[in-house]
Simulated assay, not measured.
Amino acid sequence: MNSSSYPNQKFDHQNVATGVPVAGFQQQHANVHQLVEGPWSSGLCDCFSDCSTCCLTCWCPCITFGRIADIVDKGSSSCSVSGALFLVISLVTGCGCLYSACYRSKMRQQYMLKGGPCGDCLVHFCCETCALSQEYRELKARGFDMSLGWHGNLERQNRGLEMAPTAPVMEHGMIR
């Protein structure tokens, strides 16, 4: 959808269907450079706007990260494998933040989210819990049920489409 195809319409990245990353749009259209990065749905320090996510991330950041990675990777890596890898890297090297920062960058590119004045690595290094919580809230705001994972969300979306009526129900014949 570029300005030459639809002269009276401008692309609004915030009105992209929930759960559909902007990256798919970018690959299909030549005028990608016209897209602008948009804001996050919540701020980095808005952790207490979703207390359950904040608590989960404080006590078990590997679960939060695993769920984020599953969605960002579109199901190609499982929640448990990503979370376990994050945990091992964190315990062995203390640098799990470097691994999770890669996913923040990937997520920002998929959804055309603005980067802050600090790089993704610095954000995760200085405030891992806040960064993971913000990413989790962002995916929830885009319509993902984080506990279902990528495949569960696809199934839920497909089930919703299958249940939609395709044609009106007609009564049997004419009665005289």
Rank of each mutant, 00 (worst) to 15 (best):
N2T: 09
S4P: 01
Y6C: 09
P7V: 13
N8F: 06
Q9S: 07
Q9H: 07
F11N: 01
H13C: 05
Q14L: 09
V16G: 02
A17D: 11
A17R: 13
A17W: 09
T18L: 09
G19Y: 01
G24D: 11
G24I: 06
G24C: 01
F25K: 06
Q27S: 14
Q28C: 10
H29W: 12
A30M: 07
H33W: 04
H33F: 07
V36M: 04
V36C: 00
E37I: 05
W40T: 03
S41Y: 13
L44K: 11
L44S: 08
C47N: 12
S49N: 07
S52H: 08
T53R: 10
C55Q: 05
C55N: 03
C58I: 11
C60W: 12
P61W: 10
C62M: 10
I63W: 15
F65S: 06
G66Q: 04
I68R: 07
A69Y: 06
I71M: 02
D73Y: 03
D73W: 00
S77K: 12
S77E: 10
S78P: 00
S82I: 03
T93D: 05
C95K: 04
G96R: 08
G96E: 08
C97Q: 07
C97D: 07
L98P: 04
S100M: 08
Y103W: 15
R104C: 04
M107L: 15
M107R: 04
Q109D: 13
Q110N: 01
M112D: 03
G116F: 11
G116I: 05
C118R: 11
C118Q: 12
G119H: 08
D120N: 13
D120I: 03
D120Q: 08
H124K: 03
F125H: 14
C126P: 09
T129N: 06
C130A: 14
C130V: 02
C130S: 10
S133P: 02
Q134C: 08
E135L: 05
R137H: 05
E138C: 02
E138T: 01
L139I: 01
L139A: 03
K140Y: 02
R142V: 02
G143F: 03
F144N: 01
D145H: 05
L148R: 14
G149M: 01
W150S: 01
H151P: 00
G152P: 01
L154W: 04
E155Q: 15
E155L: 15
Q157S: 06
N158C: 09
G160V: 01
L161H: 07
L161D: 04
L161A: 10
E162G: 06
M163A: 13
A164V: 14
P165T: 11
A167N: 06
A167D: 05
P168S: 14
E171A: 13
E171R: 13
H172W: 07
M174S: 10
